[in-house]
């Protein structure tokens, strides 16, 4: 059984440039989260277009589990869609992270620093790697992964949708899901900046459903946020096999 929940908040900012959508249809699920980059203008249009385009592609493949090639096409179309709505002085861009599930299989893809976490058996099984400057610093050994949250270059994303040249999203293998509860969390940096991975695990162990899981974590975020915090958005998916 699959269940999903999502939310999006403008945080302490005037405009919410995040966008999220998720659908569950029997044993199938698609969830997409996008974070419009503030520096370029029009971030809210960019994130909305990215989610629309990826969902359009998903429906075009009869809403089945797409293969890596099909996911690549979806992201290229999303990139083209965002690029097409740019205008002089508003070269909008966005991150995007998408999760696809059918039965006991899942796959996912992302561009930028919107993350996808997979939890199983009370452990964090996998987490996407950011396309960002702080992640580069981790890769070359200057900081450890925990340092990403506090890195001064945290807002510098190295790959985003909305480029003329196209994008190369990071696409997972089709991943078999084991019996019991598999939980996925897709979230923008405005979320994971304030909610740590162990806390995600703890709150998952307390939660009956994805909505409750998000509520527990949002309370942590809110108790840490300083009133001028970023937009924050997350989608949570439970796959009970």
């Amino acid at each position: 059984m699959i269940s999903a929940a999502y939310y999006s908040s403008r945080g302490g900012l005037e405009i919410n440039e995040d966008f999220v959508h998720a659908t569950v249809n029997g044993n199938k699920c698609c969830a997409v989260v996008a974070d419009g980059l503030g520096a370029y203008g029009g971030g809210e249009q960019a994130s909305r277009e990215a989610v629309r385009a990826i969902f359009s592609g998903y429906r075009g493949y009869n809403a089945s589990l797409p293969d890596p090639g099909q996911i690549g096409v979806m992201f290229q179309l999303a990139n083209a869609g965002v690029y097409a709505i740019q205008c002089p002085g508003c070269e909008m861009k966005t991150t995007a992270a998408a999760l696809f599930i059918e039965g006991d299989r899942a796959c996912w893809a992302h561009v930028g620093d919107t993350r996808i976490y997979h939890f199983y058996g009370g452990e964090l099984i996998s987490q996407t790697v950011d396309h960002s400057l702080p992640q580069l610093a981790v890769d070359i050994g200057k900081i450890d992964a925990n340092g990403i949250r506090f890195h001064k270059g945290r807002n510098q994303v190295l790959m985003a949708l909305g480029t003329k040249e196209g994008v190369q999203p990071e696409i997972s293998e089709t991943t078999p899901l084991h019996g019991g509860l598999n939980a996925f969390l897709i979230c923008t940096d405005g979320f994971w900046e304030y909610v740590y991975e162990t806390e995600m695990l703890v709150d998952l162990c307390k939660s009956e459903n994805p909505k409750q899981w998000l509520e527990f974590m949002r309370l942590r975020l809110q108790q840490r946020a300083n009133g001028s915090n970023d937009n924050n958005t997350a989608a949570a998916v439970f796959v009970q096999l």
């Binding site: 058996g121 009370g122 452990e123 509860l181 695990l201 703890v202 998952l204 162990c205 307390k206 939660s207 009956e208």
Partner: peptide, 9 residues
Amino acid sequence: IDRNIRPFP
């Protein structure tokens, strides 16, 4: 009551 409903390894 705050409690976990699944084991925490």
